[in-house]
């Protein structure tokens, strides 16, 4: 059962990703990105990481991509003025290199393996919460500062007049 679900959601994720990368209009890419994010969330659930899946949907799909959509609408480049994509040498090489990278990763993955077993409850609310507020407290606090910086930075950059 698990295998079937894995393959299903994995395929959706991969196809979604490919569509994200290949669309002409950014809006289409954004929508496919949402699809991919949802598929990944499902994969998280498969590994008993419920909390993370929820955060993925709420934050990633629900906020970040929405932000993307806002910006796309704000910028509003007309269809005819969108950048034309050509297949240059660098690009072809880039695709090839990425392919190589995936292959290498596959080989690596086979070699440096982990014990097969039932999914430990790593991504649940309890586990993440406990870890976050005890072992990784500093990281948590710094992340809050990081978010503050990001907020201020985003506002400062996007304002018309400071």
């Amino acid at each position: 059962m698990e295998t079937v679900l894995f393959i299903l959601f994995g395929a959706i994720a991969v196809c979604g990703a490919i569509m994200v990368v290949t669309r002409k209009h950014p809006m289409a890419s954004a929508l496919y990105l949402i699809l991919t994010l949802f598929a990944v969330a499902a994969l998280f659930v498969l590994r008993q990481a419920h909390f993370l899946a929820a955060v993925q949907v709420i934050v990633y799909a629900g906020a970040v991509v929405v932000l993307f959509v806002f910006v796309i609408m704000l910028i509003n480049v007309p269809e005819d003025r969108l950048p034309v994509e050509r297949a240059t040498t660098t690009r072809v090489l880039g695709v090839l290199a990425a392919g190589f990278f995936i292959l290498e990763s596959a080989v690596l993955a086979r070699r440096f393996s982990m014990p097969i077993g039932p999914a430990a409850e790593v991504g649940t609310v309890e586990t993440v919460g406990r870890a976050l507020f005890t072992d990784y407290l500093l990281a948590f606090e710094i992340t809050s500062v990081l978010l503050l910086a990001a907020v201020i930075g985003a506002i400062a950059l996007a304002k018309r007049k400071i």
């Binding site: 660098t90 090489l93 290199a97 190589f100 990278f101 080989v107 690596l108 070699r111």
Partner: peptide, 19 residues
């Protein structure tokens, strides 16, 4: 994009070498 490609190529080569 060109810079990113360089990074990618380097990473590929490194990982390949490790492998």
């Amino acid at each position: 994009g060109g810079y990113a490609f360089s990074l990618l190529a380097g990473a590929v080569l490194l990982v390949g070498y490790i492998l």
